[in-house]
């Protein structure tokens, strides 16, 4: 046989097929791993879960509390339940007893209200899952923010939406802003609020 003559390709051996199969499978698995990691990295970068595949859906709460029923249908102000928001640091979630001031008579035959009444009779506070959390080392106080924006946005309840989104229409409460330091500082600059470190960090 002369050099350069045509040679029919050799039939691949069983071992080679297995090797290529394993390599291909490994590649697919690797790609999936990379995509999953990239999703987490991008979410962390944005400070929010990606707005896809329902990843940004809020957590399940011990009682599926429907904000729309209370806010849109009944027209309650945010400050009706979150009473401390115009006074102090935390907006506060009302105690079960406060819910019971209506629900002792309202909402018979509803399973979620039944859960609430069980919490009330057993004297156990509801272990709500926290949705909004500012980063560590931040002393965030609601009151001055509400005070600053109240006039502009028509009262305390209009102000909440700036950071929390339209909670009144959310069936499951979810976070809509990253609430990271860049987010805070941008807003402070726009509103000529102090940007000294010790405004929040001490």
């Amino acid at each position: 046989m002369l050099p350069g003559d045509f040679q029919p390709p050799k039939r691949p051996t069983g071992r080679r097929i297995a090797l290529f199969g394993a390599l291909g499978l490994g590649g697919v698995v690797g790609l999936v791993v990379v995509v999953v990691i990239a999703t987490f990295v991008i979410s962390a970068w944005l400070g929010l879960p990606l707005d896809a595949f329902g990843l940004n859906e809020g957590p399940d709460q011990p009682i599926a509390f429907p904000h729309p029923t209370h806010v849109e249908d009944l027209g309650l102000d945010c400050t009706f339940c979150h009473r401390n928001v115009t006074v102090g640091a935390a907006a506060t979630i009302p105690a079960v007893g406060f819910c019971m001031s209506c629900h002792i008579t309202v909402g018979d035959d509803k399973p979620e209200v039944e859960k609430l009444r069980n919490f009330h009779t057993s004297g156990i506070p509801v272990d709500w899952v926290r949705v909004h959390r500012v980063p560590d080392h931040v002393n965030f106080v609601h009151e001055p923010h509400i005070r600053h924006f109240s006039e502009q946005y028509g009262g305390a309840s209009g102000t909440c939406q700036l950071c929390h989104g339209d909670v009144g229409s959310m069936v499951k409460v979810q976070q809509v802003r990253s609430l990271k330091m860049g987010d805070c500082v941008d807003c402070h600059r726009d509103n000529e609020a102090p940007t000294d470190c010790t405004t929040c960090h001490y």
């Binding site: 560590d136 080392h137 000294d196 470190c197 010790t198 960090h201």
Partner: peptide
Amino acid sequence: TYHNNEGMNVQVYNR
């Protein structure tokens, strides 16, 4: 550590 606009010497722990 830096001087803030209220005349205080400030330590920022997270930095």
